[in-house]
Write a protein that binds this DNA or RNA. Structure first.
Lengths: 218, 218
DNA sequence: TCCAACATGTAATTTGTTACATGATTGA
DNA sequence: TCAATCATGTAACAAATTACATGTTGGA
């Protein structure tokens, strides 16, 4: 299970289940997520396997904290995972499933609505990632070439998110353009607001090549 | 459950569980995946709900096929899903988790190996998507602006994969460049093959802007 | 004769989500 | 006093993977 490995990675320093839950929302959100109700029993199982030890610590407020530390076995397991093959993802992207079948509705306004909504979400996510990167750049003058190894690798994963979200926004722009070109020829399912949308300029800095067939570079 | 909705979408025409399994590997692979052992019981549950009906049909070879058809209730449920909010994804991208923690190894050669391996995978996936698009363009002279609604939406989702995979390849290029710049200053964990890798030119057609901070466009 | 593709399923297990349960402390 | 944050968990359910089980047909 990869959750166990992500927890091992996060436990570079000792932390409680609750702490780790917060880390999933903050630092790890762009590549993993987990609920506390999954984290707690998982930590328990990892302790049974000998990858972690725990001790109780009084809390400033609220009940005792149960603080976990990685054992040398845990560290070894993490290394094994890190040195192994990159783990893929059986992609399950529900919004693409929706879009794929939206042709069965024969209502282009609905397709348009979905693309506009998606673009808005991707833009927000992108802006959040850019903000994080700006923060890192401002608070460490070694950014980016002289960063310590940990932060440097964090930057690499952050930039994966940046590239992908930029691409998603650009894809939405392209798709909306294709869609509006269609709406101009066949009147069926036409969105009355299509022409008045104020927010439709594609990003000129991020066009892979001639639309609509960037595949043909041979 | 979105699997049920994807199955409803795929059942535009009647099909057996086995057929649908093949469709997941072929047409739907870039946005969803499912094993036959998940598909069969799911179809059963959907029939109980009244979204599908089934009848047996003799097969050319092998046992009888159990062919499912969408009912009007099933069609209505599909529409409800399609007209609803775009469904997000709790992203769990294991390879980014690996990369994120690879800093704890302090072995840049290992980071390099992973990025090169990832880039290779993304390139292959990208080439496969480009090949599919080329096939569609060749077999339908209405491509892309005059395609019927179904194929048009299929094209939109395909192009999502194209954009994202292009971005992933470009991200790997950038990451390797940053990495090699690091290796040049600090000798620690240096990959002896880094300089002789023949396969390292970044794609000039797909650079968002100045590296390494495409976020700063203000 | 053996393997691949066709065809359908069940069982066991793992993984992930949602709902429930409890209780302390701090600030508005 | 009320809500938010801290803090840990269990239970029920849903979803997904892996392993098991069975049997046919056609081609190398």
């Amino acid at each position: 299970m990869s959750l166990e490995h992500v927890l091992l990675g996060l436990l570079e320093r000792p932390a409680s289940g609750y702490d780790l839950g917060r880390e999933f929302e903050e630092t790890a959100a762009h590549f993993w997520s987990a609920h506390l109700s999954q984290i707690y029993p998982t930590l328990g199982r990892m302790e049974e396997k000998g990858w972690l030890t725990s001790h109780a610590e009084p809390s400033d407020r609220g009940p005792d904290r149960k603080v976990y530390s990685r054992t040398s076995d845990g560290r070894r397991e993490l290394e094994r995972w890190l040195r192994g093959e990159p783990e893929g993802h059986a992609s399950r992207v529900a919004y693409l499933g929706q879009l794929f079948f939206l042709g069965q509705l024969d209502d282009l306004a609905e397709t348009r609505r979905m693309l506009v909504e998606l673009r808005e979400r991707f833009r927000e996510r992108l802006a959040a990632l850019e903000e994080i990167e700006r923060g890192w750049a401002a608070e460490d003058d070694r950014f980016p070439d002289a960063l310590p190894s940990g932060p440097f690798h964090h930057l690499l994963t952050l930039r994966a998110g940046l590239w992908v979200h930029r691409a998603r926004v650009a894809w939405c722009d392209e798709a909306l353009e294709l869609l509006d070109r269609r709406a101009d020829r066949g009147p069926r399912g036409r969105d009355p607001d299509a022409a008045t949308d104020p927010d439709d300029a594609p990003d000129p800095d991020f066009a892979p090549e001639t639309n609509p067939t960037p595949g043909e570079r041979s």
